[in-house]
Each structure stands twice: as structure tokens, then as C-alpha cells.
Design a protein around this nucleic acid. Structure first.
Length: 549
RNA sequence: GUCCCCGUAGUUCAACGGAUAGAACAGCUCCCUUCUAAGGAGCGGAUCGAGGUUCGAUUCCUCGCGGGGACACCA
């Protein structure tokens, strides 16, 4: 039996089902699922225990509906037919189970063969080309240069970074971009300028006051220039923090102001005017957003003559799609910006960008809680409300893992009082510890024993713990694909926790050092394969792999 | 008022319409002469409410109730 990846096993099962379930109008495969008779979804799902097979399908229920027949009868028939045509050595068992599932057990040799693949592929294990080289731009954090990064910025930052890794691993060309809101004509820069010149108190904190003292403003500087100068300073600091402390490397730092300098903002407005998509009212220029799905028309240029945020943002997104030819753009935003999405969508639609090109990932806000009471962003000392303070407190890996665990839709409650204590119990250590244990095993072995013999026999790997671990390892390619396709790194985090658990179980039960040669070699192969998968998965999430703990 | 998200164990979260609703933390029992106990084994504990669709609903639909967010010539 040649080594096949688990993903191929699943496909193979699907093709077996297709062969025997035909006759109801060309079932086809779509995203790992079978779609038969046009719109009837059929699933083949992997299960974590042996109870109902390694794989199961609900195809009989779907067919029952079409054929008006008892699902259990169909399942029984399918199981029999599939058994007849399945290639030797692939399935160890197949059965129909009430009320109509068909369950598949993969032969041990096929699973053991997967180990060989992992050991051979190493860092490439799980890689694929399903992205087809499509260019995806992911824009995230893009925090206003008016102060330090918040905990919410961190959530978006880790998500964007991990997502880019995963997409690149699966054959997309993902680029990470930070949009710097540094437009001189913006209200926030002017407000910042007023504060810098002592004419206002917007964004003012003790830290900001320090910074204002530090920067040297020319005498008689305009509010615009003062704000711009101060924003640059704050941005410099945030960028240093992102690169050095968050360890996130952006491919592009895109300046909003550059869109003014290049004339892109002006050209975008002209285009809108020319096509009768903008009109003048009350001294301002409005975009006919209501014609394109938004609830009302939106201001592009204020009656003061200065553009709103919307106009340069349109120019920016046009730059993504028209100039730089991205196939898809993902904007990661906090929930507080959600209402802005229809406006941007309407604008892009009007300007001829195809609708499904832009995707918004809306992160629900992180709610900071202390002793059961909500803590509002407070400038008082001692409340770590900035991302820096959080990371200083709990560490980068713990913070990163914590945020990546949860789906963007979750309204997270982050308890400040418990954060430190929680951080020590962070699940990231559970995973990292599994990795460290493997290194511990290797360290215990003599140099010669650390290498696998050329023809390692996997036969001794036959306990329940062995198979369970192998099954998890073999699912890695499938899981990465799922994470990429659904743009959801959290899937990978959960997988990692389960795989680490499977390893800890294996470790508890079986020994390697000092075992008989054949057994030691086989178990070493399993440990090494686990190490590869953990390395690959942690690498994609951007979590470090410590040598010891 | 309108729109979006959420409501699952004491707590923080899982479960792409499937089989006995999973973890972690907290609580209670056990397991270190062994490759690190940051680990393992076990116990107790949950789907906000009412209808509907379905062979099957935590998941989909409608209506309530509760929480968060958005409804700017701010970004």
C-alpha cells in the first residue's frame, strides 16, 4: 500500500461513494464535500474515536430523500457495494449504522504509511496549492496614530498574521498590509495638532505629553504640521512595537497621505463626479451610496473642502484591486467599524470592483473585566489596557495563542485580575510541553539511536494510543486546508490542542529509550512525525517552539 | 427605532443540519525509584424561552427575553 495522505484517503472514500451512489444526476466534489443532484449536500466527516469509524458519511439520508426510500436500507446497500469495489488493503471495515450512516475504518497499514509521508515531507507536510496562486491582500491593525496599540489591535494583529501564514502555506499569495491613517487633512491629525500646540486635550495622556515635549515643533507651526509630526512619532513607536515585540512583519506599510500626494484621491473623486456618482449639496460632495445598497448617501468632501476618511479609503481600495490587481482583499476590523462596511462596499461596487473580492472579518470587541466589573479604557496607571502592558504581563506566546483560540465572533471577556494567573494555565503551554517532551526523548537517546533505520517497520505501532496519535497527525493537511478556506486560524488551534493531547497520552503509556530496537525505532518514528506536525502548526500560528520549559 | 454579533457546565470557550453536546480553568479522588507531573486516570456539572422546518436542531426560520457593538461633514 503506497503512502497516501489522509486528505487523499478522504477523497478516495468520496470517489467510492460516488461510484456506487450514482444514478441520481452527477454527484460532484466541492470543498471536500459531495454535492449531488444539484443542491443536496453530502458530508464525509472524520471522527475522533473509533466508535463510528474513522470516517462517516450521511449520503444515505440524502439519497433516501431523493429516492423516497428507507435510509438504513440504502446505507446497507451502499456499504455492501463499496466493500466489493474498494481496493485491497485500504479499508479494514465498513458498515451501515442506524439510522443510516455508513462508517469506514481505514486499514492500519494505510495509517502507518502516512507516517512515512510525514517523515519524508517534514516542513512541507500539509502544504498545498489549493490557493492556485491567487493574490490576497490582508489589511489589519491599521491603528490610528494617536496613541498606543490596544488589546483589540492585538486580536486583529495575531489573526491577520496567522491567516497570512496559513494562506501562503496553502498556495495563495498573501500579503500583509498596514494602512497608516496619516492624512494631514483628517480631523484626527488636526486634533492631535491642537493638542501638540497646547490648544486642545484630545488623546492627551501623560505619555503623550512627554512625547510632545520631546518633539521639536517649529515656531508658528500649523495644526496640520504639528499633528502630522506627532503622529509620525507615535507611528514610529507603534511600528517598532509591532515588529520587535509582537514580531509581526508587514509586507507593506501604506500611507494614507501618499494617496493625496500621488493624486489618487483627486482622481477617485473626479471619476465619481464624471460618472454622476457624486453630487454637491450644502457645500459638500456626496456619494450616491444609497443607489448601491447603503442606507443613505455619504459625504466624500466636507463643506470645508477637506475629504472625509471615506474618499481616500475608496482610493486605497481601488489601488488594491485596480492597480495592484489583488484577487481578494481581506479587511480585519473591530466591531466598532462594522457599520462602515456597506458604505465601502457600495463605493467599490460603483467604481467597478467585483463584490466578492472584498471580505470583512469583523472582530467582536474584547471586553476588559476586573472582578466581574467592566473596565473602560482608562488612562490611570496600573490598568493594563494597552497591548504592550498585556504582553509584558502574560508573554507573547500566551497572548497570541489566547487570541487565536477564539473565533472572531466571540465577545471575549478578558479578566485583568486573572490574566496573570490564567497565563500560567494558558493552553499554549500544553502544546509547547508536548514539543519539549519530544526533545527530551531525543536528548535521552544516544546519537546513533536518534536516526531512524532506513526501513523502519511501523508494525509495532498498534495500540489504541498509537493509532489515535497517527490519526491526528494524518489529519493535519485536511485541517490546514479547512483553516485556509474558511479563513479561520482558530480551527488549527483546536486541532493543535487535540494533537498535543494525543501525544501526551502516547507519552504516558509508551517508552522509547531503553526499549527493544524494533519497538524503539517505530515509536521514535511516531515521535518524530509528531514533532514535525507540531512544528508546522505552531509555525503557522506564529507561536514559538521552546527547547525546554 | 433600525442593522450586526453573542446567549451552551460555577467560569472562559468548542461542536461546517448528524450518532452518547466536547475541552480548559475551578471543585473532589487517585498516579512521580521511569524520556521534565507545565503531565496522566477518574467523579460531579450545561444548550435563555416559545413556536416552526427536518428522518434528525446547539446549529436553519419567526417571535420574545438578556448582553455587546454600530447607526457623523470621527476614523
Amino acid at each position: 500500500m503506497p503512502a497516501v495522505s489522509f486528505y487523499k484517503m478522504k477523497k478516495k472514500i468520496i470517489s467510492l461513494i460516488e461510484k456506487v451512489a450514482g444514478g441520481f444526476g452527477g454527484p460532484r466534489l466541492w470543498r471536500g464535500r459531495l454535492t449531488a443532484g444539484g443542491s443536496v449536500p453530502v458530508e464525509v466527516f472524520a471522527s475522533d474515536d473509533e466508535r463510528n469509524g474513522h470516517y462517516s458519511t450521511n449520503v444515505a439520508f440524502r439519497l433516501a430523500k431523493i429516492r423516497k426510500q428507507n435510509p438504513m436500507e440504502i446505507a446497507t446497500m451502499l456499504a455492501e457495494k463499496i466493500e466489493e469495489i474498494s481496493p485491497p488493503g485500504f479499508l479494514s471495515k465498513i458498515e451501515a449504522a442506524a439510522p443510516g450512516f455508513v462508517n469506514f475504518w481505514i486499514a492500519p497499514s494505510a495509517f502507518q504509511g502516512e507516517l512515512k509521508t510525514i517523515l519524508k515531507m517534514k516542513g512541507r507536510y500539509g502544504r498545498s496549492k489549493i490557493g492556485g496562486g491567487k493574490k490576497i491582500q490582508i489589511e489589519f491593525i491599521s491603528a490610528n496614530p494617536t496613541g498606543p496599540l490596544t488589546v483589540g489591535n492585538g486580536r486583529g494583529g495575531f489573526l491577520g498574521d496567522a491567516l497570512a501564514n496559513i494562506l501562503n502555506f496553502c498556495g495563495w499569495k498573501a500579503r500583509k498590509e498596514y494602512y497608516i491613517n496619516d492624512a494631514k487633512s483628517s480631523a484626527q491629525i488636526r486634533e492631535l495638532g491642537k493638542t501638540a500646540l497646547g490648544r486642545g486635550t484630545s488623546y492627551l495622556t501623560e505619555e503623550l505629553a512627554e512625547k510632545i515635549k520631546k518633539i521639536k515643533l517649529k515656531k508658528g507651526a500649523s495644526e496640520e504640521d504639528a499633528g502630522s509630526r506627532l503622529a509620525r512619532e507615535l507611528m514610529k513607536e507603534n511600528r517598532r512595537f509591532i515588529e520587535k515585540e509582537l514580531k509581526i512583519k508587514f509586507d507593506v506599510w501604506f500611507s494614507e497621505e501618499s494617496l493625496y500626494e500621488s493624486g489618487a484621491v483627486r482622481k477617485t473623486l473626479e471619476k465619481l463626479k464624471k460618472n454622476d456618482l457624486a453630487y454637491e449639496k450644502d457645500g459638500a460632495w456626496w456619494f450616491r451610496a444609497s443607489r448601491f445598497g447603503d442606507t443613505e448617501d455619504r459625504v466624500l468632501v466636507r463643506n470645508s473642502g477637506e475629504p472625509t476618511y471615506f474618499l481616500p479609503d475608496l482610493a486605497y481600495h481601488l489601488d488594491k484591486f485596480k492597480k495592484r490587481k489583488f484577487d481578494e482583499a481581506i479587511d480585519i476590523w473591530g466591531a466598532d467599524h462594522y457599520g462602515y462596511a456597506p458604505r465601502l462596499k457600495a463605493g467599490l461596487k460603483a467604481l467597478g470592483v467585483k463584490e466578492d473580492g472584498i471580505r470583512f472579518i469583523i472582530l467582536q470587541l474584547v471586553r476588559l473585566v476586573k472582578n466581574g466589573e467592566e473596565v473602560r479604557m482608562s488612562k490611570r496607571r496600573g490598568e493594563f489596557v494597552t497591548l504592550k502592558e498585556l504582553i509584558d504581563e502574560v508573554g507573547l506566546d500566551a497572548a497570541r495563542f489566547f487570541f487565536l483560540m477564539y473565533s472572531p465572533d466571540t465577545h471575549m471577556d478578558f479578566d485583568l485580575a486573572l490574566a496573570k494567573e490564567r497565563s500560567l494555565k494558558n493552553p499554549v503551554y500544553y502544546v509547547q510541553y508536548a514539543f519539549v517532551r519530544i526533545l527530551g526523548i531525543l536528548a535521552k537517546l544516544k546519537t546513533a539511536e536518534r536516526k531512524l533505520p532506513p526501513k523502519t517497520d511501523f508494525e509495532p505501532l498498534n495500540t489504541a494510543e498509537d493509532f489515535r496519535l497517527i490519526r491526528f497527525l494524518a489529519r493535519f493537511p485536511e485541517i490546514v486546508r479547512e483553516a485556509a478556506e474558511s479563513r479561520a486560524p482558530a480551527v488549527l488551534v483546536r486541532y493543535l490542542l487535540e494533537t498535543a493531547r494525543a501525544f501526551h497520552n502516547f507519552y504516558e503509556k509508551e517508552r522509547i529509550a531503553g526499549e527493544e530496537k524494533k519497538i524503539a525505532a517505530a515509536r521514535l518514528a511516531l515521535a518524530l512525525a509528531t514533532k514535525i506536525v507540531l512544528e508546522n502548526a505552531l509555525g503557522l500560528l506564529g507561536v514559538s517552539r521552546p527547547k525546554k520549559m
